[in-house]
């Protein structure tokens, strides 16, 4: 067990959602108000989650100009879908991350498809799957996630990172790592289960 992991475990499991100290309920109520067309509430919601959204999108798409464009699309989508946000099905933060990641992945995949078509240039996208652990920051969220990622086996961490941060399908992960598709799927699943348990996610 790493030093980080020990420190982390001593702190005990995290609450399911809020990692930045802000009240989870507040984010959900801002979103619900935004769902009733309240633009002021949406601005508050934007300020609470924009770093999460932009950072995730940037990590997946890599290009800051494209990340800006996609981030704006994500917020328009969150605004449009806000009336359908259902707090009983998941946290506002989880929902936001889901919409942001999906949109970023859609962008890289359609970009990739276009490139494949136009150029037949099977460019291997370079994925620095271990760069999470290279980041040195005092951000509590990062410290906790890094500790959690550290507790995964190398192969699990690699598979989860390629899928989530690299925006790859598990089939692509299998191909990149030269392993069977079933193995890639299992590593992703086992890795996520371990992360879930460490992060203390509860229904």
């Amino acid at each position: 067990m790493s030093e980080m992991d020990r420190l982390f475990r001593r702190r005990g499991p995290l609450r399911a959602v809020s990692t930045d100290g802000s009240a989870t309920d507040e984010l959900a109520s801002l979103l619900r108000a935004a769902g009733r067309g309240d633009e002021v509430a949406f601005r508050g919601f934007y300020r609470s989650v924009v770093r999460l959204v932009y950072g995730t999108v940037l990590r997946v798409v890599r290009d800051p100009a494209i990340a800006e464009e996609v981030t704006q699309e994500v917020f328009v989508e969150l605004w449009r879908l806000a009336p359908r946000f259902d707090g009983s099905k998941g946290s506002a933060r989880g929902w936001t991350a889901t919409v942001a990641h999906r949109r970023a992945v859609d962008r890289v995949r359609s970009e990739q498809a276009r490139r494949d078509r136009d150029e037949r240039d099977a460019q291997q996208s370079a994925v620095a799957y271990d760069s999470v652990s290279e980041e040195v920051t005092d951000n509590l969220d990062r410290v906790r996630v890094r500790a959690a990622l550290d507790s995964l086996s190398d192969t699990q961490r690699e598979a989860v990172s390629l899928a989530y941060y690299g925006g790859h399908t598990y089939r692509e992960v299998a191909s990149l790592l030269d392993i069977a598709e079933g193995t890639a799927k299992t590593r992703i699943r086992d890795g996520l289960i371990k992360l879930r348990d460490i992060m203390g996610v509860t229904p």
């Binding site: 959602v17 990692t19 930045d20 999460l52 950072g55 995730t56 940037l58 990590r59 946290s91 933060r93 989880g94 936001t96 991350a97 889901t98 942001a100 990641h101 999470v132 951000n139 969220d141 990062r142 906790r144 996630v145 890094r146 959690a148 989860v160 989530y164 941060y165 996520l192 992360l195 992060m199 996610v201």
Partner: peptide
């Protein structure tokens, strides 16, 4: 996954 997002 939202934690993974938050780390970035």
């Amino acid at each position: 996954a939202a934690f993974l997002a938050g780390a970035e």
